Simulated assay, not measured.
Amino acid sequence: MVDYIIETDGLTREFTRRGKGRETLRKTTLRAVDELRLLVGPGESVGYIGANGAGKSTTIKMLVGILVPTSGTVRTCGIDPHRERRRLAAQVGVVFGQRSQLWWDLPVRESFDILAAIHQLPGAAARSRSTELIEQLELTEFLATPVRQLSLGQRMRAEVAAALLHRPRLVILDEPTIGLDVLSKQRLREFLITERREHGTTLLLTTHDMGDIERLCERVLVVDHGRAVYDGSLDGLARAAGAERTLVLDFADATPDLTGIPHTTHLGSEVAGARQRLAFDSEMTTAATVLAAVGERAQLRDLSIEEPDIEDVVRRIYRASR
């Protein structure tokens, strides 16, 4: 029997809204999460994506016990989140991109000391773990700086360290790279990859940055109006949406348009045909087969493959689900 880190069945959350003005007595019900079934095993890395208002943050709040489900069941790390929030806090680390768990006027180092005391970490273990996180996330230069004086990139790295200080089994990251520069994003992604590899940490990531999903997640769950409309791999997501891969072909000389190659669409030519783009459906053919056909008609000098744009793939999934 698998001990799931996240296990939900029929998970539903509704909100009641009152009207405004003359409609004050009128109530409407909004279903933010709609009978969600989600199983996440130990060590998995899952991207939980969808448009604003799709129900992602509401789901997270139920997973950690901040909200009570309207119906259905949820267990996180084998624990009922709402009934045993304090016990669950020792198993889960959460980072909200728009909120801080650090003390605003205190130096970063003191926030870590307070969190270690809250989690009742032994002194030696707390010092060892703090040192590890400080080194890996490059925090040394601003440990003595009050949190309010940190740049956004510095604060987010400190937030991740704070969430992982007690070695949680599950880390939930809600828009962790929002507003970060390219270098800060790269540092954070590399750290999370290392943390999963060395400690078997389970990761649930919500983000609008598709680079985060592509680099950090092995599995993707797409939600639309609170319903799961896709659950599988990134490659499978593109196939489910009917998205095509694109071959960018560079030739030694000007080349006539490569039309008529089976299961491909000629997207355009540049430099008198010396560079051409062919889209192909990976369900119907392979890049190798297409290249063999191209080689019979022209001398190929170089090539690259462009993968489908993930945001476009998600839009296609939404349209199909509706």
Results as ranks from 00 to 15, higher is better:
119 H>N: 13
258 L>E: 13
310 I>K: 06
201 T>V: 09
132 E>M: 13
190 E>T: 11
317 I>P: 04
158 A>I: 07
43 G>T: 01
87 R>G: 10
199 H>L: 10
142 F>Y: 12
224 D>S: 10
294 V>D: 03
252 A>E: 15
249 L>H: 07
76 T>H: 01
253 D>R: 12
132 E>L: 15
34 D>G: 03
165 L>G: 02
16 T>E: 15
98 Q>N: 09
307 E>A: 14
163 A>N: 01
166 H>L: 05
221 L>M: 11
284 M>A: 15
36 L>M: 10
224 D>I: 03
284 M>R: 15
35 E>M: 04
252 A>T: 15
108 V>N: 15
142 F>H: 08
243 A>R: 05
283 E>N: 14
121 L>Q: 10
7 E>H: 11
248 V>R: 14
46 V>H: 00
92 V>E: 07
229 V>S: 14
135 E>P: 04
176 P>A: 03
23 E>P: 01
62 M>V: 07
182 V>F: 02
202 T>G: 12
44 E>T: 01
15 F>L: 08
146 P>Y: 00
168 P>N: 04
213 I>Q: 06
144 A>K: 06
224 D>P: 03
64 V>A: 07
200 G>S: 07
156 M>N: 06
200 G>I: 03
258 L>S: 12
276 Q>F: 13
250 D>Q: 12
18 R>L: 14
210 M>E: 11
241 A>W: 00
48 Y>K: 00
157 R>A: 11
267 L>A: 03
321 S>N: 14
15 F>K: 09
247 L>V: 04
76 T>L: 02
283 E>D: 15
280 F>D: 14
20 K>G: 12
299 Q>L: 10
306 E>S: 14
208 H>A: 06
235 D>G: 15
280 F>P: 13
114 I>E: 05
61 K>W: 02
186 Q>A: 11
45 S>T: 09
164 L>H: 05
239 R>L: 13
298 A>G: 05
120 Q>M: 08
231 D>C: 10
78 G>C: 00
85 R>Q: 08
280 F>M: 12
164 L>F: 05
266 H>K: 01
308 P>E: 06
105 D>P: 03
80 D>F: 00
196 R>V: 11
139 L>H: 02
305 I>G: 12
252 A>W: 14
225 H>I: 02
43 G>A: 02
248 V>P: 05
63 L>K: 07
275 R>H: 07
184 S>R: 04
16 T>A: 13
123 G>E: 14
280 F>G: 15
192 L>D: 06
116 A>K: 03
204 L>W: 01
180 L>N: 01
100 S>A: 05
246 T>I: 14
197 R>F: 09
264 T>E: 07
122 P>S: 02
118 I>C: 03
155 R>A: 04
255 T>K: 10
49 I>R: 02
250 D>A: 14
56 K>S: 00
98 Q>G: 00
19 G>I: 05
15 F>W: 09
56 K>A: 00
293 A>S: 15
120 Q>G: 07
274 A>L: 10
158 A>L: 08
265 T>H: 06
107 P>A: 07
75 R>V: 00
61 K>M: 04
114 I>R: 08
9 D>S: 14
211 G>Y: 05
290 V>R: 09
182 V>P: 01
65 G>Y: 05
127 R>N: 09
225 H>R: 13
283 E>T: 15
127 R>T: 12
72 G>F: 08
140 T>W: 04
300 L>F: 05
290 V>I: 12
309 D>E: 14
74 V>G: 03
230 Y>N: 11
